[in-house]
Design a protein around this nucleic acid. Structure first.
Lengths: 340, 340
DNA sequence: CTACTCGTTGGAACCGGTTTCAAGACAGTT
DNA sequence: AACTGTCTTGAAACCGGTTCCAACGAGTAG
């Protein structure tokens, strides 16, 4: 009995064409050494059955998927989206397809590595803004899966990153040079499983203040997630202090925008009464005129993808280098001289 | 000889534990009916070898992946990102994982369906802002893969969409009611393979003009892709016409923003000299104060995901219904009365 | 006429899991 | 001691492809 169209297996095609499965496979993959009359019979059978090989079975047999997986926490974040855009661009000239996997929770992170750490669902891994748990690192290396880190650094893998300490310093120094001495900071909470760039930016902040002879005040250093309303609430607290800061360095643009919103709600004028610096230079930053430290988000994705393709091409492992991308202060309208 | 850690197969575990592969499989999947001393030996072997089952082989055997695939053209577009956000949210309570696949080119679209139309790489499909080619529709149905369309309508699948004709009408009527009679439109070019919502919004535009007794002028109706610079160039042309339009309806917010940029470059004041209405209400729209027709982007993703989960749960196919989400005019600062 | 080569071809092993099914071990009954 | 039922267990079939290798037929050289 013939199978339903669209459900045929290679054996069905072989049966209908009166040949063996090996021959069908040869035709499918364009191997030479098939008599043209035989090939025609096979092609006819394939079309009659509306047959398409199972890519899953094919991958299992070939031990190859022609897929690259990108693992990101909260991949709908503006900065993550930019990175993905770069990855898409970096892979576009290759014959690899990209599959994007969100790992917003610890549970999903576990699942993600369950799917990918054996290398059977993807030939290469791009891990963005996260560090793989140590057991996974070992498994990935044992299985020999090419893996590149973006916006995270690990001694076992090639990484694309920025110098977060320097970034925090650039932002803070800008404020100090404008005359600010009451400079607050809003950072991310210590991450459960993510790469701790926030700590480094905080260190840069501290270093810049130290260089200017300004003491770090505990009540000026706050932490909160990137969720808009959280950042807004924290900023509101900060701006309600008796001795209100005259400037805020937010460790990400999304948080900086929360600060701007809080300021507007409190009737505090920016930049006349309050200066705000962000980090990342996401698209919205230009629209709201946010002064920020630009990191090349798109470029980081593109470069990571390129690096991965190189590792995939020559099968020898590229040594675990760490490529730092340049940072740049972009001065827009949210920073100004300290109020008199 | 023992395999490298992280490369072990189930047979290796079985051999080390001195049991059969069936027993290892039972332990892995938590089946009852394994003597606890045996189970312990198996667990010990699994840990010693740092074993993890191949999810690919598992899927092949089980004919099930616990993965939902979302296929989107240009998934880094702001509106697409919002939809993905909704999808993530809609799936978060389930045990399905999401894999996102970009299909920006016709080639990638073909690849995408090659991977997914047999249902072996994913248990369910969310096709966003695209129509599957007709042969794929047949294959998907033959293979019985649950599939839900978002922002596209097809008689064979459940769909989540908006009434684009009504949307175009709402936007245009708003302009007409402000007194505008020279109303231009910037739409998308007829899509190669995408869902043609732009045509419907244009139809709504025409209908609203007709209702007001205004004739449609060919030179006021333009087409261009969503790329920022393309929209800007088209807008610049439009705003340089001898008889310049006093209002522009852009069929998407990204294009509307291009219009705003062109106007600023030409020194045309918005809304004093030019009114602009967009469509979608992406996040940036609020920041630039764009008047627009809001469609529930996040909600469309969430609802699509929910629908798909229902189809996946009770295996009977849900009838191909079309669920329309509500549209809403959001008046901000880019529209005003016609200049005297 | 035999032997050897070359071009085609299909059977079977393999990729790495799950599951059926029959059989072995063991305790409880009669 | 023989019989029955329950609990464990592993060999083998299966998921759907790819590919090694042996075999087969035709053509040609010796």
């Amino acid at each position: 009995m013939e199978p339903l169209p669209g459900t045929a297996r290679i054996a069905d095609v072989a049966a209908r064409a009166g040949v063996g499965v090996a021959t069908v496979s040869r035709v499918l993959n364009g191997h030479s050494g098939v008599r043209s009359t035989t090939r025609d019979r096979v092609v006819e059978a394939i079309e009659a059955l509306n047959y398409r090989p199972s890519s899953l079975a094919r991958s299992l047999s070939l031990q190859r998927t022609m897929i690259v997986a990108a693992l990101l926490p909260w991949f709908t974040n503006p900065s993550a989206v930019q990175r993905v855009r770069g990855i898409v661009d970096g892979l576009s000239s290759s014959s690899y397809d990209l599959m994007v996997f969100d790992i917003e929770s610890e549970d999903r992170q576990r699942r993600a590595f369950e799917l990918f750490d054996r290398g059977d669902r993807a030939d290469g891994l791009l891990v963005v803004s996260t560090l793989p748990p140590e057991p996974e690192v070992q498994r990935i290396q044992a299985a020999g899966i090419p893996c590149v880190l973006i916006d995270a650094v690990h001694s076992c893998f090639p990484s694309i990153a920025v110098d977060d300490v320097a970034g925090g310093e650039i932002a803070t120094r800008h404020l100090v040079e404008l005359g600010h001495r009451r400079v607050a900071l809003i950072g991310d909470p210590p991450p459960e499983f993510r790469f701790d760039w926030s700590r480094d930016r905080t260190r840069g902040y501290e270093r810049a203040l130290a260089a200017a002879g300004i003491e770090v005040r505990d009540d000026y250093v706050r932490e909160g997630t990137r969720l808009p309303h959280v950042a807004r609430a924290i900023a509101a607290e900060l701006l309600s202090l008796r001795e209100r800061p005259t400037a805020v360095f937010a460790a990400s643009d999304t948080q900086a925008i929360g600060v701007l919103e809080a300021a507007r709600a409190l009737g505090i004028e920016v930049p006349a009464q309050l200066s705000v610096v962000g980090f990342d230079d996401i698209e919205v930053a230009a629209y709201v005129g946010l002064t920020t430290v630009r990191q090349p988000l798109v470029e980081s994705g593109r470069r990571g993808a390129q690096l991965l393709l190189e590792v995939l091409a020559r099968r020898r492992a590229v040594e675990p280098l760490c490529e730092l991308l340049p940072l740049e202060l972009v001065v827009r309208g949210t920073t100004g001289p300290v109020p008199a």
